[in-house]
């Protein structure tokens, strides 16, 4: 009789379980909160990756949420076949790498001038740097567009790359700011010693100041790479030809691209993606995006630890 009686867990039972668990008190609370928030952060990515492996029928079927009934790579096939990767991938790589290089070289150089020298109007100029961070690109994009079109560089990568070599471009002012904070924070004595030994200002910068800014450089490289890779606002204005487009633009125009080469794509495979014979559905966009996110993911995985260290050590703390 006693054995069949359902034993409700008492307060002591909970206490015993709690005492046995390796995580206690505030830590337990923090883990629960962090896991919940991490879930909210990760959800769209999981949604995207899973949908990219779903067939069209699974996507429109609301009961198929997490595990696709028909695991298929068809979306990837369609996306990769229509994204003109032989053009867009090198295009994106060249623009991103050159623009990032421009940012690192020019912004560190300019910031060194702002951090180490006081000259007439330097305060005003630095105020303009800050203003360039605060200014939405939409305010000045029209005159810039007109200028680029009068110089005949629309459709080339010059409007995307060249401004980066002058401390402007995509959030260039922010990188000048970051480098300046770093250079202000390091002691002057090393550079003074170098100049006593006969090192000119340029040589001091390239041989001593810039190499010591490794952590800030990592931060700038990661942010610049990622922002340039993902950007589609400015490229969308300047590049209109499919062959000169960058990856995010191509993903944005997948629908028209796929519709234009439908017959070509249908030739190879027997099954069609959509219910009404169309190949385009949201899964294809997801697949295209997943594909285009592989390079920044790889870059971030390699640079992640150094990036976090860099943020901690960068001039931000010394504000």
């Amino acid at each position: 009789m006693e054995k069949t009686k359902i034993k409700l867990p008492t307060k002591d039972d909970f206490l015993r379980i709690y005492k046995k668990s390796p995580i206690k008190g505030v830590d337990l609370f923090i883990y629960v909160m962090l896991i919940l928030m991490a879930f909210v952060f990760l959800y769209p990515f999981m949604h995207m990756v899973i949908n990219s492996f779903k067939s069209y029928n699974d996507i429109i079927n609301a009961t198929v949420k997490w595990i696709p009934k028909n695991f298929t790579l068809r979306s990837y096939e369609v996306a990769i076949a229509s994204m003109r990767l032989e053009h867009t991938l090198p295009n994106s790589l060249i623009v991103t790498v050159l623009a990032t290089l421009g940012h690192v070289v020019s912004c560190s150089y300019i910031a060194y001038g702002f951090a180490r020298y006081k000259f007439p109007l330097s305060g005003v100029f630095f105020a303009i740097v800050v203003l360039s961070i605060l200014m939405p690109i939409q305010v000045i994009i029209i005159p810039m567009y007109i200028t680029y079109s009068t110089f005949g560089v629309l459709g080339t990568y010059i409007p995307l790359i060249v401004p980066c070599f002058f401390g402007f471009g995509l959030k260039g002012g922010l990188f000048v700011f970051l480098y300046r904070q770093y250079f202000l924070g390091i002691p002057k004595s090393l550079e003074e010693a170098a100049s006593i030994d006969g090192c000119g200002p340029l040589k001091t910068f390239f041989k001593i100041a810039l190499p010591s800014a490794g952590s800030t450089t990592i931060v700038c490289i990661v942010l610049s790479l990622v922002w340039h890779w993902n950007d589609y606002y400015e490229p969308g204005l300047y590049l209109k030809e499919y062959d000169s487009m960058l990856l995010p633009q191509i993903v944005a125009s997948l629908k028209t691209l796929i519709e234009s080469m439908q017959s070509q794509l249908l030739e190879g495979a027997g099954d069609s993606g959509g219910a009404d014979g169309t190949l385009f559905h949201s899964g294809v966009v997801m697949a295209g995006t997943c594909f285009s996110m592989i390079p920044p993911m790889i870059a971030y995985l390699f640079l992640q630890r150094k990036f976090m260290e860099g943020i901690e050590r960068s001039g931000l703390t010394g504000m």
Binding site: S106, Y109, I110, Y112, G113, F114, R116, Y117, K118, F119, P120, S122, F125, I128, V129, S132, P163, F165, F166, G167, F168, G172, V176, P201, L202, F205
Partner: peptide, 15 residues
């Protein structure tokens, strides 16, 4: 002053 301007020269052109 000259050295300072030398460093921010690219920015001046860009600005």
């Amino acid at each position: 002053n000259m050295n300072g301007y030398l460093f921010i020269l690219p920015w001046l052109i860009g600005a």
